[in-house]
């Protein structure tokens, strides 16, 4: 188990500050982490969206995303099923945010969190709030979002009192081809209304994009250019974060 295999996932991330935050002179409130496991086949993604009004929302989001990825990697390494790893990631994120907040008011660090833990055997996802996970398996798309709230200006945060009842988790058996984790700024484009299902014309080209070319700063810049384009900006004035992974390996042994 000590050997390290280069990851067989192609990973691209983009994170763009929203027009509303630019206007108000605030910094980006989204945080994204993608971590490839040493086994080459496991990858963990976390996207956290700090509450716009929470003065330390960006700090809370960064702490949540970092702790979530570490906890999920530890859990899968210890043999936990991906859905358990994803759930533990949410718990660890809350503990981390509480630690960062210290004596200060927890609500000031409010953030949503979406985590995907992907192995070749199974994918587990856990979400609180309005960030989302979409996976692509044999051409079909599936989505997990948090407990939806009726109103556009309301959601549940890691730090909310109803965190435990509003969190959602799901699992998909078997290998997947790609996954996307994104903050709510993209929801209007990425999910069909009113069904809430993933919008195939949005995801198909994005997964193709993630699967081709060499991952790196250039690919990230290309994704950020897309996220900054008028087509995206005219639908949201919020921060927009998108993490994409696409499988490029082979599952045949040897």
């Amino acid at each position: 188990m000590a050997t390290t295999t280069a990851t067989q996932w192609s990973m691209v991330t983009g994170c763009v500050i929203g027009a509303a935050h630019e206007r108000e002179g605030t910094t980006r409130q989204d945080a994204v982490r993608v971590h490839a496991h040493d086994d080459g086949a496991t990858v963990v993604i976390a996207v956290a969206d700090g509450a716009g009004s929470a003065p330390e929302g960006g700090t809370g989001a960064a702490a949540a995303a970092a702790a979530a990825v570490d906890a999920a990697i530890d859990a899968v390494t210890a043999g936990a099923p991906p859905i358990d790893a994803a759930n533990r990631a949410l718990d660890a994120a809350l503990v981390a945010v509480e630690r960062v907040a210290g004596e200060r008011e927890l609500g000031a660090f409010a953030s949503t969190l979406a985590v995907a833990v992907i192995t070749r055997e199974e994918t587990g996802a856990a979400v609180v709030g309005d960030s989302a996970v979409v996976v692509s398996a044999t051409g079909a798309l599936a989505v997990l979002t948090g407990d939806p709230s009726e109103y556009v200006n309301e959601t549940t945060f890691l730090t909310s009192t109803n965190f435990d009842s509003a969190r959602r988790a799901a699992t998909i058996a078997g290998p997947i081809d790609g996954a996307a984790v994104f903050s709510d700024g993209l929801a209007l484009l990425a999910l069909d209304a009113p069904s809430g299902r993933p919008h195939a014309p949005f995801f198909t080209p994005l997964f193709d994009f993630a699967a081709t070319g060499e991952p790196g700063a250039e690919r990230d810049a290309a994704l950020e250019a897309f996220l900054s384009s008028p087509r995206v900006r005219e639908r949201t004035d919020d921060d927009v974060t998108l993490a994409l992974v696409a499988w490029r390996g082979t599952d045949a042994d040897g």
Partner: peptide, 10 residues
């Protein structure tokens, strides 16, 4: 004010 508010806004 309401119509420009986002989640978490007081």
């Amino acid at each position: 004010q309401v119509s420009s508010s986002r989640p978490g806004d007081h």
